[in-house]
Design a protein around this nucleic acid. Structure first.
Lengths: 223, 223
DNA sequence: CGCACGGTTGACCTGTATCAAGCCGGGTGG
DNA sequence: CCACCCGGCTTGATACAGGTCAACCGTGCG
């Protein structure tokens, strides 16, 4: 548990207090949901293991994946605002989360300045993530979107201690497409094209980044 | 000042405390910026008067407008996460803001539960706004995007006590286009088309919603 | 073993972008 | 006070990225 909360940078004594809060783990099976849109908001969830997607829906049934979340990240933040979750969180593989009841968390935040600040921080980071997604969806071409997606995954795998150049996607082409505001055929074609160009190697969901420099150039990064 | 903080739902006594925090007003002239990307984060800003756009940039200079903000709203929330603002906030007309130094705000939040909760709430609402924008940018057609934009503005004007069916846009076609992930010519054509169809009446930036029911149907709302 | 789901690929279509020309209205300087 | 100019807007013609429809494949799961 502790390592999960290390991003919160607490003193050991505060850690013990937090342990009271985050006592209960929870296993979520692949395809099961942690919460649904409209569910009353009671807790945040710290992902210990596995991967989740968050999804929002239109009235007429279309859906948009708004995020992929891996171990060490916290989800459910969108529920604080109006005491109901706005999105759905679905496990992409068998996963495990810590339930962080928000009342307890807030009570603790009352005393522990560092925790309060870090709560703000987490929520605010989600805002920034949203802004980058708007940038991506609003003004980037398809190829650039996919390249960014891959580089972002690579970086996150790296911070988790996995290879940043070789990994297995947890999501289908259709899910990638939804996230990137494209159609699944387009994503499939893009994978093939990037492979032809020698930038990546794809075999189903197994991806190897062969030329990250070129990928970064694709997304307009100065190298 | 007080009416601005009324969404925070404070007791009168707490109000007085908050007055200490939000003492200083600030006039911002049209086209001037409240903060720039990279600026150190020190405060939130409560808009008293006027309109702002928030903008994020790519390394290679493209820009995406991520939000329009009117009186009563709070901006700058994206800065909390890493102590630097990620976006730029530009006044679309002569405006006035209250500066809310975050240190003071947080200190006060330590004591006042309601304020703490409402801080969370504000930030979280921004996340939800981001999610709806992803939905819009990722899976809606151009006409639907514009219709949603207009209906959203209408509703916000209404809550400010202005007409919800007749208002003057503060932004150019190009700014609307950026926000909606389109090009200015497309936005212009859409305005013309909605007018031909009798749903709205446009004269430059003056807009009148003639058939909100049809507009809502356009965005897939059951009526 | 076979079926169903996920993925690839091709042919064609269309919504939106792009390029280009002209208009309108309001602010400025003569 | 008028003429001009410029930024913002509209509209048309054309291009193209990505969507749609359809056929087929492979593979892993029951």
């Amino acid at each position: 548990m502790r390592e999960l909360c290390s991003p919160l940078a607490l003193a050991p004594e505060e850690m013990r207090q937090l342990d009271r809060v985050a006592c209960n783990r929870n296993r979520i099976r692949k395809r099961d949901s942690l919460f649904w849109p409209g569910d009353p908001f009671t807790a945040l969830y710290a992902i210990r293991l596995g991967t989740f997607k968050t999804v929002v829906l239109t009235e007429d049934g279309r859906e948009q994946i708004t995020g992929y979340h891996m171990a060490g990240e916290i989800i459910g933040l969108d529920g604080i605002g109006n005491d109901r979750h706005a999105s759905q969180a679905v496990a992409l593989e068998d996963s495990e989360v810590c339930v962080l009841p928000f009342d307890l968390l807030d009570e603790l935040a009352h005393n522990v300045i560092a925790l309060r600040r870090n709560l703000y921080r987490f929520i605010s980071n989600d805002i920034c993530r949203g802004q980058s997604m708007m940038l991506l969806l609003g003004s980037m071409r398809a190829e650039e979107r996919l390249a960014r997606f891959l580089l972002n995954l690579a970086q996150r795998f790296q911070t988790l201690g996995y290879s940043s150049s070789e990994f297995v996607l947890r999501m289908t082409r259709e899910e990638i497409a939804s996230y990137l505001g494209l159609k699944l055929e387009t994503v499939s074609r893009l994978f093939s094209r990037l492979q032809e160009e020698g930038l990546i190697q794809v075999q189903g969901r197994a991806v190897k980044l062969l030329d990250s420099t070129a990928l970064k150039r694709l997304v307009g990064e100065r190298c």
